[in-house]
Design a protein around this nucleic acid. Structure first.
Lengths: 356, 356
DNA sequence: TTGTAGGCGTTATCAT
DNA sequence: ATGATAACGCCTACAA
């Protein structure tokens, strides 16, 4: 009895339980039910339990689409990341999702997989959901994306990078500074023949920034770093192959910085296979402080980027903004969460203290 | 001029460009615009360009909420995963998102972080979005979740596991079989004193299943496996500590299977530190075939679970189902994507062939 | 092919 | 405090 012949123009296709059904059963008006759902204290103690019971009995689930349409605000937040395969972003997304969820907001997810034009597509899609806010990765966006974001009637947060003019919120840190920090550390421990391994740096803006920071700092010391920009995702294979390449062209290399810990891990493995002692002959540093970085042999010097905090701060700042009226123009805000250089045995000769 | 005193009962808070605006500018009716948007061929070649231009000029973005409400179907699919920190699930989610996006569907993401009760909460939230379909992880759900899923007017896909009665679709493989395969392999290469390391197996159902498959197969050969169930997320630390534990209680252990490659990696590191030769003295196997598993020293024997294919198949099957009328009751379907035992040097004495 | 009008399930406004 | 009722922006059966 799904399509009854009668009832002309009845489009009530779904026999979904609606607020009216609840109202009827509780013998109140739909308005009261709506009120109760938003603020249970606002209805008299006489009818509140009736409504509550009706909801339970009927198994009523509010229709957010209708609600959002009527209220002209959707409890959804669109998030664009380059890739979920990257542990940094999946950690940030996880943290955001948890926090959004706590506030009753739904996370809409999109990944560009580093394909040009995808960001604009995803943002456009998100916009058609009338999201409460938008979160994008990085500060570099093509003109189309910028236009869409500017036209958005919702706060825009940029994450994982600082720079340019913020739309409404930026939460991240300077990747140049991270690269510089690694370079300075390398110099301090006596590195003179250095290289930087990065994956796909033409499209991975932030890896490129770390690379540039590293190179510039090295140049200040009169050292020209060899840059190994390998195609494809960052992976241990990437690192292993890159090390092979570097050794061929620069046999006396004494320090290698990597744009990612997984690359550095590959360097460690390849060095192990070749019998190159680390850090005695070659110092290695990464970026990310991934779970294995503390445990590998030797433990890896790296930069810890606070991926979770980025997600959390973004969510908190956005949740705070949504409490205000969209009218009160809130100042754009930049939050530098910083990073931490974590020095471990891969760049120092001290005893391995992995089991502190 | 946001709240003009006139225009009683005007709630038009947003000066958003609507379909009516487009229609007015193109000098056609809104329904023609609607038709054009859904099927550009269906309107006359005379007005089509007018509509197209009006859309561009006004920067019209369709309101999916209104559209979904009217059409009683939302182009959104809710996905529940245990955790995005787990590379398996983030890979599957990435694959799904890409495929959904190709079909114009939005992925709604939720993670339980292995907390009891969270699955039901997330499903309930998703349901209020009237999703086209729901995707959940695994086949074990509490009563509340089952009830919600059963009541859902949308196909329900279960992933990463097979078993029990499928709601509409299951795409996964047998984790028991995966555990058994590892056990048989270990037996073939002469393992006699074996252990299994798993993380948080009380809540990670699938890790437990792999463990059980492993243990049962060992028992058939008269061997009782020592089971190391460590708390917390799977990590190299987990593996390193577990190996230490095992060596203390079972010094003559000659084979260790792990519920996850990252645990196995930790075992390799700890063995390296202790000077335990692998595979000569100790065979090690993992699960997941993560990026480092082929590259580490020695390369790791593992089970490759086809995370991407699971996501892709789920998306494809669901997209196919949504083409049909919800009326035609489609048969529940089970897709076993299988897995592959990848034998590498960590369990064999053959020459390392990492650079094939 | 194009237009008209009713309805999708809420929320918000206003009157009681 | 509660209830009518008008939006919200679009889709779709039906008429023209």
């Amino acid at each position: 009895m799904s399509q009854t012949a009668k009832a002309p123009r009845s489009r009530r296709s779904t026999n979904r339980v609606t607020m009216d059904d609840v109202a009827a059963r509780a013998r109140v008006s739909a308005s009261s039910v709506s009120l109760f759902l938003r603020n249970p204290e606002a209805v008299s103690p006489r009818i509140a339990p009736r409504i509550k019971q009706a909801i339970d009995v009927l198994g009523y689930v509010p229709n957010l689409l209708a609600g959002s349409l009527a209220a002209a605000r959707t409890r959804a937040i669109g998030v664009v990341v380059p890739s979920l395969g990257n542990a940094f972003f999946s950690a940030t997304v996880a943290a955001m999702q948890t926090e959004f969820d706590r506030h009753g907001y739904q996370l809409l997810l999109g990944a560009t997989e580093y394909q040009p034009g995808r960001e604009a597509d995803l943002v456009r899609t998100f916009l058609s959901w009338s999201p409460t806010a938008l979160v994008v990765t990085g500060c570099r966006h093509d003109d189309e994306t910028r236009a869409l974001l500017r036209s958005a009637r919702a706060p825009v947060a940029e994450m994982w990078e600082l720079g340019d003019q913020p739309f409404d919120l930026q939460v991240g840190f300077s990747h140049y500074a991270a690269g510089e920090a690694v370079a300075r550390h390398m110099l301090e421990i006596g590195a003179r023949r250095v290289a930087f391994i990065g994956a796909r740096m033409a499209s991975d803006v932030r890896a490129r920034q770390r690379c540039e920071g590293f190179s510039r700092e090295m140049l200040k010391a009169g050292i020209e770093a060899r840059i190994e920009d390998v195609p494809g995702d960052a992976s241990p294979q990437t690192g292993a192959h890159a090390l092979a390449d570097i050794l061929q062209n620069m046999p006396d290399v004494d320090a290698i910085a990597c744009s990612n810990d997984v690359i550095a891990l590959g360097v460690l493995f390849e060095a192990q296979r070749r019998g190159i002692p680390i850090p005695q002959q070659l110092r290695v540093a990464g970026f990310g402080d991934l779970p294995f970085s503390e445990e590998c042999v030797p433990p890896l010097t790296t930069v810890q980027p606070r991926a979770n905090e980025i997600g959390l701060r973004i969510a908190q700042e956005l949740m705070e903004r949504t409490d205000h009226e969209p009218a009160d123009d809130i100042e754009p805000r930049i939050v530098d969460v910083g990073f931490e250089l974590v020095v471990r045995a891969s760049t120092s000769n001290v005893l391995t203290d992995h089991d502190a």
